[in-house]
Design a protein around this nucleic acid. Sequence first.
DNA 1: TCTCGGTTACTCGAAATCGAGTATTCGCAT
DNA 2: ATGCGAATACTCGATTTCGAGTAACCGAGA
Lengths: 231, 231
Amino acid sequence: MAKRKVANPLAFAVLGSLGERPMHPYEISTMLKSRGKDLSIRLNYGSLYSVVSALEKHGFIKAVETLREGNRPERTVYAITEAGQAEFADWLTELLARPEKDFSQLEAGLAYLPAFPPAKVIELLEQRAEVLRAEIEQFEATHEQLRAMGLPQLFWVESEFRLELIRTEAEFASRLADRIRNDELEGAGFWRQGYELVEKLGIPMTDLLRDPVKYFGEEFPWLQEVPPEAR
Amino acid sequence: MAKRKVANPLAFAVLGSLGERPMHPYEISTMLKSRGKDLSIRLNYGSLYSVVSALEKHGFIKAVETLREGNRPERTVYAITEAGQAEFADWLTELLARPEKDFSQLEAGLAYLPAFPPAKVIELLEQRAEVLRAEIEQFEATHEQLRAMGLPQLFWVESEFRLELIRTEAEFASRLADRIRNDELEGAGFWRQGYELVEKLGIPMTDLLRDPVKYFGEEFPWLQEVPPEAR
DNA sequence: TCTCGGTTACTCGAAATCGAGTATTCGCAT
DNA sequence: ATGCGAATACTCGATTTCGAGTAACCGAGA
């Protein structure tokens, strides 16, 4: 699977939009916004114009006319080409059928949990869960409204999917906070003890990391073998 | 909330790593890999070195020594500064407590479902679900192994989170395929009819989009009012 | 009539991102 | 002894990305 000539998902949206009818870039951007697609696909002007010219360079779209009304900036209207339609179809196929690893910000944070004391992590995770619950209500309200407008789900499935992701995240955050609190998370005991040494006895964390056996004894056997590169 | 001076999550990982002990960039990269953190945080050499020098420029880390062994490339060892520790703490707080919108690739695809006929979408979504189920088994096996090694969950929570996200996605994909198949998704009927006109009668899709009432009648009232920008 | 905020439509350059490429050394099998 | 693949440790420049900036026009109210 060679890499796409134009890889930005915004390019995919541009092809999709021009698949409906010819438009100029700014019109594409307002259309994407009015349909809420900018919530699923990162849209910003700089990228939009650079992506459009990249698509043109590779023959996926072509300029069909350039209008000048009064002294306004020129508007260049683009249309999709055959090659562009093929590229779009191929891209959509890939987007739907092949999961692509994308990195969520929370994962980065979770990877460094031990850098904070357990109590602080619990607090932060619960803050997150609360924010997420508010977002969930937002989404539910919006969906209610869309339904009231009579717009079929078909046109906002992506929003339903996002809602599911947020629900999963909220659930995970608050479950994790609970697990830490109740010492159900493996390693939480060691974690708590470590911070007690640091906070109550003033032993610097770097010492603990350098010679864990000295401070924790043999109670935590995995300290001996992992992380392997730390010794 | 002003933007971070160095915003790449990899910079966060660098700060976290140097929080343990001074290291040179390549050592950071191998450590991140050996702990599997490269699965949660996008790591590549180009970014690593540019991020390190950006962190140094802003005083979050500083070079402590430069070694040259034989004719090998120089290794510059960096240590975290006080400012760097503060930045890391602030960043971790934000990562844990404040959900940040990140765009998943699938959302982009879902936003353009109507561009393919329903049957094709069903097929692709089921392919995806199958791939995801394989990934889930992979994760479960890995977790089993980590547990067998005695490494506490605390050090791989981020992987548990990812697993939950993948489960959600698999569930969503296969549920959606079912909903389309069973006409449980609002708008699916219209969708199917549209493609029948295109495929059986050879009417070009662009005609349908231009004058939907002509082809669909009043049966789908939302066509009249939405999308507003399409008229 | 003036003006003032909002919309239209795009430009520009600084910064970030990427990943292939380079050059040396090490271990190990032949 | 030698060859060769893997590991070490980075470099470099071509894209990409970003978002603030620009400049004209539009309509409503003072």
